[in-house]
Amino acid sequence: MAINPGYFIRETISSFRRNWVMSLVAVSIIYISLLLVGAFFLTSSVLNTIVSSFEAKVSVQVFVKDGAVPADVEALQANIQKIPNVKSIAYVTKDQALARFKERTKNSPQLVEQLRGNPLPASVEVALVDPRQVQTVVNAIVKDPLLAKVVKNPANPTQSDIRYGQNVVDNLFKATGVIRIFAAAFLILLLLVSLVLIGNTIRLAIFARRREIGIMRLVGASNWFIRTPFLLEGVLQSLVGSILAILTLLAAQAVIVPWLQDNLKFLPVTIAGATFAQLAGLLVLSGVLIGLLGSGTAVRRYLKV
């Protein structure tokens, strides 16, 4: 009395086709909800890259006075390199500083013309692993006895000789933190709302067929024999809906991301392939799970004949 698994597949597909109005309703609700979730997921991932790029700009610059002993500067660099949370350091010579200044002001060349000689100091640039820890790193540099030999104003180095955007940093991190929390909370809320919506739609579709379930029971069908095609149908609806949503997002992304890159050149607007794969996985998995759960709980209610 082995039941042919082919039976369930045929049964699922034919039921999907014959109840096409309800199937269409279910698929479109799933499609729209998952599309919204996906669109917001991608938006917040772009937002996150932008926020991170701002945070990454936080670095420490130590200005070296003209005429500092090169051996002292090198020793100081070696010490800074040893401070925890320092990612890398770079020495910028006076000439390099001037070249950068010229590059930055190339639209108004008269600025450079007015310079006599090279008034720009050399500097040590310190990049950080976690920009949030910038104050700790600065404190460590200030404590280094070599610093006094290298900078112009050893009595109070943080006034002009060490620059790290003291005032900006705190506010920036407050702002980025709020943006991140808000985005995550909204995404979770959106996901919950769409899961409830999808679950209810599937349950409605089954409610419309509760009489059929009763009839199946009366002609001797066992519970799992009745349930399996309904479960597979819920999964099929979710699969179709989520795949359509992913395809739409893929197409929209291909149009919108280049446009944003063109119009917002100063911002890093990109969506990593891994992010998209993650999203696709999330959508398909949550869709299928809720399809199973929704149809499973709904069918059970009508199996009591």
Partner: peptide
Amino acid sequence: KNAKIPFLRRNIGC
């Protein structure tokens, strides 16, 4: 038992 009912009904045409 609820799970046994289908087997009863398979012996009854209605």
